[in-house]
Amino acid sequence: MSTEEATTVRARPEPIKAVPVRHPGRWVTIAVLAVLTAMFLHVLLTNDAFQWSFMIDNMFRPPIINGLVQGTVLMTVSAMVIGVGLGVAIAVMRLSTNPILRTVSWLYTWFFRAVPRLVLLAVFGNIGILWSRLEFGVPFDTQIGQLFGIDGMELRLFGFDSRDVLTGFMAGLLGLALSEAAYMAEIVRAGIQSVDPGQGEAAGALGMSRGQTLRRVVLPQAMRMIIPPTGNETIAMLKDTSLLMYVPVSMELFFQLDAVGKRTFQIFPMYVAACLWYLLLSSILLIGQYFLERHFGKGYGQTERARFRLRNLAAETGGGAAGAGGTVGGTPDGTGSGTGGTPG
């Protein structure tokens, strides 16, 4: 283009009115989906087994709301807080130059990722069998005492009855948090390793210590990589609180819904109620995740991408809760099928 052409104002051409490409396949898909949706709605409305009014009457009862708040929500928050904190520590240990710390960290993640959460929770629920009392003091005190010829020497500072400490909630929290820490450690490690090694070198060349480099330079940059999978972990954790039934923890959403179902012999409506509750809670978390990601994308010119994601998210949630639920992604140990088959 010559400069002359560029500077002279030219008349705007008529807008193009072309015949668009036809997509007959789309119409077929829409027709099929319409029929399937109609069939689904038909089942929902006409099949008596759903017992909608019974479900709505029962899904907001005080014990269920209590279980939701004190069990599901509180447990998700506490387990994630401990899991993230411990996970960061384990990831840092894994990347340290100290071979002992590296090995300990490797063993930890190996163990807690290898054992299914459900099994882990069952074990923690019954750990009181090992020790009836938990005491803190000099380790191997009785054995040391015997070495010096003293029988029954006990050097204990304080102790608890294990049934007082490892109540259902504590045992469940321990199981979920320790297992979460293993997954979070892998996520944090990947995040730290994604940061350009030149960053650490630049900080080192300025005389910053390894700790300062980690806290001030590496972790803030790793956050961008860590936040999205942590959001997924939180949603997975929310759903995994339903496994607490095996500890057992009674103050929990699914346990309560299940109990109502079994007591009234209306099991299926209460399971549908569980689906709806978990859909609602997960959707709320998805929205929270969006804002977190936007916050940590600051200064990176990533707002454009985040805005794009919000549009996608709006489309998903706008298209019904089922759409949002579909993006959540399941946990490896398959909570749905595991709890669905419980004998009464």
């Binding site: 350009d196 030149g198 070198e201 630049a202 060349a205 300025l206 803030p220 200064g299």
Partner: peptide, 15 residues
């Protein structure tokens, strides 16, 4: 601390 270094790829802290 007393040795300054400037890298080919700048290595500024982006955040």
């Amino acid at each position: 601390r007393s040795i300054g270094m400037v890298f080919q790829r700048f290595n500024l802290f982006p955040h």
